[in-house]
Structure formats: C-alpha cells, structure tokens
Design a protein around this nucleic acid. Sequence first.
DNA 1: CTGAAAGCGCTAACAA
DNA 2: TTGTTAGCGCTTTCAG
Lengths: 328, 328
Amino acid sequence: MNPSIKDVAKLADCSTATVSRVLAGKGYISESARKKVEEAVKELGYRPNRVARSLRAQKSRVIGLVLSDIRNPFFSEISRAVEQVAFQHGYNVLICNTDEDSTREEHYLKLLEEEQVAGILLSPTRNRVQKLNTVSTVPLVLFDRKFPKSTLDSVIIDNEAAAHALTRTLIAGGFKRIAGIFGARSYTASARISGFKSAFEGQESFIAGTHQIDAFEEEGNRLTKKLLNDDVPPDAILCSSALLATGAFRAIKEMKLRVPEDIGFACFDDPSWATFVDPPVTVIRQPAQAIGESAAELLMKRIEAPDRPVSEITLQGELIQRASTGGN
Amino acid sequence: MNPSIKDVAKLADCSTATVSRVLAGKGYISESARKKVEEAVKELGYRPNRVARSLRAQKSRVIGLVLSDIRNPFFSEISRAVEQVAFQHGYNVLICNTDEDSTREEHYLKLLEEEQVAGILLSPTRNRVQKLNTVSTVPLVLFDRKFPKSTLDSVIIDNEAAAHALTRTLIAGGFKRIAGIFGARSYTASARISGFKSAFEGQESFIAGTHQIDAFEEEGNRLTKKLLNDDVPPDAILCSSALLATGAFRAIKEMKLRVPEDIGFACFDDPSWATFVDPPVTVIRQPAQAIGESAAELLMKRIEAPDRPVSEITLQGELIQRASTGGN
DNA sequence: CTGAAAGCGCTAACAA
DNA sequence: TTGTTAGCGCTTTCAG
C-alpha cells in the first residue's frame, strides 16, 4: 500500500491537517513544521491520492478531450494545443477516442462525468442534441463541429466559406463535373456541403454528386474508385478531410489517372503528403492549433465562470493553392 | 448537485446498502426491492460517482495509455487495438500524450498512478529506468520500446531483424552509401541501429552515417536536406519511423531528386502515402494492431495476477518491397 | 433478505 | 500556528 497522509503525519509528528496545509501551501504553517513534513514526504515517497482529493473537492484538475478520430492528424494537432493551454492553467488532459461511434462517445462522456472531470472538450460525432443531456452538469465546449442552435460554447472554422473557396478553385481550374465527398451527417458536413453547392451558382460547372460516408481512408478509397468507374465519371473530386483524401488520392493513383489532366483534386486539411505527391494538392488548411487553443481557453473560462454568456468562435481556413486544381 | 446513492435510497425507501447491491448485481435482493431501486435510479437519472467508488475500492476500471507521439499513426493504430481489448475486459482507456518529452512522461505516469488507474501501458521515451520507480505499485506493460534488462512485461517487434532486412533490401538495390536516420536514444533505436549496421557485414556497401534525432517530421526534413547537400551525399536513406520518413521524403522531393535513380529510400512503418507517391516506398510494416492487442492482454493478465512471471513478447515486422529501393 | 455503521484519503471549518 | 472532527459517495462486513 502506498503511504497515506496519516503515515506522513505520524512520521512528521503532527496532524494530517498540518500535512495537508503544507502540501497545499496555504494557511499558517511554522517553518519547523513545514520542514518536518517535507522530510517525511520525501522519506516515504508520499504522493497524494487524487481520487480522495477529488472526492473531497467534488471536482478534479482534469479535463477530458473527446476525439472522434485519433488517427486524424487534424485532431492530434488539436490535442497538442489543448494540452499546452490546459497545462498552463494547471489542468491535465485525458483523451478519449470515439472513432466516430456515437455509442462510444456517449460511453466516454458518461465516464468522464462520473470521473468528475472539471470540463470536457468535444467534437461531437452526430447531430443528436439529446446526447449532451448526459453531461449537463459538466462544463462542455464543442470544437470543429457544433449543433445548429445549441447553447454551448464552440470553436469552429467557417466551413461554408472554406468549402466555397475550395470548390471555386476547382471551377476556376476548368473542371466541370465535380464530385464532393463528405463525412457522415454532422453540422460540419452540412456546412461544407452548403458551401460546395453555393459555389456552383452562376457557374458553368455542375455537381457530379454529393456523397456522405464514414470519414475513413478505406471508405474514401472505395467510393472514389466507384465514382471513377461510372459511365460519366466526375472530372474533379473534392474531399472534406485528410483521411478521405488519402483514400481518394490513392484510388486515383491506383487507377493510373493523371492529376489534374484526367481528374482535378482538392481537399480539406493539409495532409502531410500534400506537398510532395505528384502533383501537389490544393487544400484548405485548418488552423488546428488555434482551434485547440481557443477551445481550451474557452473551457477554462467556462469552468471558472459557469454562467458566462455562450461564445461561438469562428476561425477561417486558409486556402493553399497547388497544382492539383489546374488553372493558374 | 448530482443525485447520490442516498437520494436513491430515500426515494426507494431502503438503505444505501441495498441500492449498492442492486447496482452491483450481487448479494441477495428481493424482487420488489430491486424494482423499487431501479425505478428510483431511473427517475433521478442517478449515476454512480466513480471517484467515490475508486476511493472505496482502492482501484478503478481505467487503464492509462501513455503515448510518446499521438501524431504517429503507428501509435494511434495501437491505441485503437488497446481500447478494443480493454473494453472487452470492462476497462476504459485514458490516453496521455508525451510528445517524446520525458518530463511530461513522468508527469503523466504520476498523474495516472495518483488517479489510481488499474494499470498502465507505456512506450517509454528514454532509457532511464529510474523513471519507472515512480509507478512501482501499478501494473505496467511496455510496448514498442523496452529497457535492456528490465523486469517488466513488454511487447515489441524484432527491431534488429527488421532493420537488417530493410537495409539489405537497399543494399541489394545497389546502393552503396546508405545513411540511417533514427529516433533519439531509446532501446528501439539502438536495436534498429544494430540491425542497420550488421546488414553491411560482408557487403560492398557502407554506412554513410547513423543519425539520431527527435522523431518529428521537421527534424527529418532538416537533416535530410543537410545530408543531401554534403560534399559526398549518401545515395540512399533509411528512416526509422513514418514521421521521419515524411519529412525526409519531402526533402528529397523538394530537392527535385529522383527515387531510386538519384537516391534510394526505405522506412519503418507504412505511411499512408507510401503506396501512391512516386515511386512507392519500400517499408517495414509493424503489426500495430497485434502489438496493441498483445500489450493490452498482457496488462489485463498482470492486473489479475500481479505475481505472474514477466512476459516479453516479440513480434515480427513485415518487409513490403516497393520501387523506392530499386533492384528487382 | 436488509440495514447500520465503518472507513477508503483527503480537506476545511472550527476550536484551541 | 496547530489539532480535532466531520464528511465527500460508495461498498462491505456484521448483525438482525
């Protein structure tokens, strides 16, 4: 058994309250007492039991970060930013991965609340608002995705504008039949689809299809092959995430098509390979770090002031034009 | 305030002990009592406080997974496997990201222990065994990396054999001056370096350099550019991880070199882009899923039987030969 | 079959 | 400046 505060008190010949005060560094403590306690702590290798502490305090210095896909570099980037901010405020971050599975999301949300975390950062998998009732008592900030008219803090990018710009780049490159591949039903997907669609207004190009699938690499690969084997295949493809794009770009290469001559290509996120494949890929880079930081800061504020007004922060994606969209 | 077990007991008109028994599903309970309690639970939306439970039980149903780099797909793959196994055994997984920073590693190890997790899975950042004294009381299983002569369970791949095979492929492709880029000091790096070196025995090719750097994309990029700008640059590069490889391959492309004509290339892990870049890259694919599963299973066993003998599981990497190593 | 009571390790009143 | 004490929410003897 690990030593408890009692053991320390016994060794330092004082009460547990004194030990506690020394540890917390508050209240009045004599120099001699402090010294004795510190020695005892060191000698026993004492470390406070956070579970007891949390039970007592009815909260902990831990926040939960619920990611919909840990393999998505966009989310890992965010998690690093979150950790950084949290650390500065004295919080620790525990990460949960839902793999876009709303059952697991619910499970983790419950777990985190039952673990009495101080707050939760979430990129919700689906559009079902009821879910969030399960964590009603815990400060919660949404990032990357939000709900239509929710009363929760959120940090997202202007997905509609970004999708619009990306699609327009493809149109400007001379592509006529553009297929869009988006993640499954979510606020983000809807917004991007709006932007995608609105980009065609008053243009000669048209939509060759708007697809929503699970945002996994293999799904993107499968669908792309299917589309390109159609009787009238699209002449350009837009993917709404790095994972989808990886699968799609692989499909294009597997089918020995040339980009942009045979097929145009553009995607969200800035996959690690986007600059060194042939040709480099036009992308919307999401300010992942800024998103993570803002979300974490918002959560810290919400924890400290649960009744503050709701903030909805919208950041802008950055269009990076490369050769895959032709034109220029 | 969330309802506590007392509230449930009051509403169900029984003692907290009865509620607890119903919840745990053990001990003798009358049908009528069970029903009343279940109704009360539902009505109040009661959810047990895990912190209190853990404090009482002196342990939790949570295991910690400490990753050295959450952005590395190899680790995210592992984390998914770990979660799957853990779930089957009724455990939840909390992920901590150290970014190869041993201070943060230590921090998280302490945190997890203080949070009374049931066990920890760790890919240790550095070779300092003392560190692990800080978690001496918690069941701990190492994966991906281990220590020379430790008394801890571990799951790794045969890094020496894998590096040997990968290097031999490069040599067979006719490359003469091969540079190896490895992650910073770790058991894994050492083993791979051994395999790298031993591959040259009795061969005409020789080592153009054995480099150890932080396993980040930018580092790989920087070093590769530097190497290729040398007076006598290497004619092939071997990278010991996907992240390093991404940076290195990007450097090669940025310098407009042709692979394998100007420079040979091979790496560990199987980056998502390895099949569709020009040319496809020869790799050692690590059985990430198997590693994660084995490690998690080992941990489950260790938790249930703390005194069982130490297991060291070694899996084999798979050589996937593609065009970047020339030959054939 | 059920309830009373103790106690996990810690902190915060309150008293001294 | 320090100690005593109560209690966070839960489970688990031990009696009944």
